[in-house]
Amino acid sequence: MGTRILTVEDDERIRTAVKMALEDEGWVVEEADNGEEALQAFTRNPADVVLIDIMLPGIDGFDVCRSIRRASDVPIVMVTARADTHDVVAGLEAGADDYLTKPFAPKELSARIRALLRRARTADPTVTHLRFGDLEIIPDEGVVLRDGKEVHLTKTEFRLLVELASSPGRVFSREVLLERVWGYGYFGDGRLVDVHVRRLRMKVEADPANPRHVVTVRGLGYKLQQ
């Protein structure tokens, strides 16, 4: 069965048009026109990617995002009104993996979805086990252990971690991470990286306020260390 995409959008015309465009890509599209319906649909039959409009009647997009995120590591793309509002950061913090601003071209959406569906990869495919102090990464299985206990990461968080782990100690600029994890170019939104790093730290660091593994290198980017 093909990739299944759940689109949550209250404007019927947009929903139908987007559904058609995504179906042309060969994906199976499920629709929901409000938050409750979206959550029911997702519980019934989890999709591979979820597209959520932030502006929804009833339960808003952030809450839908949070609810889905609690239950699953599925990639979530949210649709916001503007790129420079706090909506973007709020959405990313609610668990979204990427965002688009309305109106977007469906081609752009497909590109985003494809980027999110990519599997995590390491520079050297023979490496199956990475260890950073109390942190253990098994790229092939998509598993991260801290002190031997499994940590639940979203697919994007996991890819970010594996990317950083591919060259331990090397500083990765935001641009490089944006390109490798999200498939964006130079002009991608650096907040994607910042918020994901923040989310990652909450999960893999013993003390997220004083990170030991995922370290910020001021003015340059991020690196992973022992």
Binding site: I14, T16, A17, P103, F104, P106, K107
Partner: peptide, 8 residues
């Protein structure tokens, strides 16, 4: 948004 998607 609808226009862009349908045109595509």
């Amino acid at each position: 948004m609808t226009l862009a998607a349908t045109v595509e």
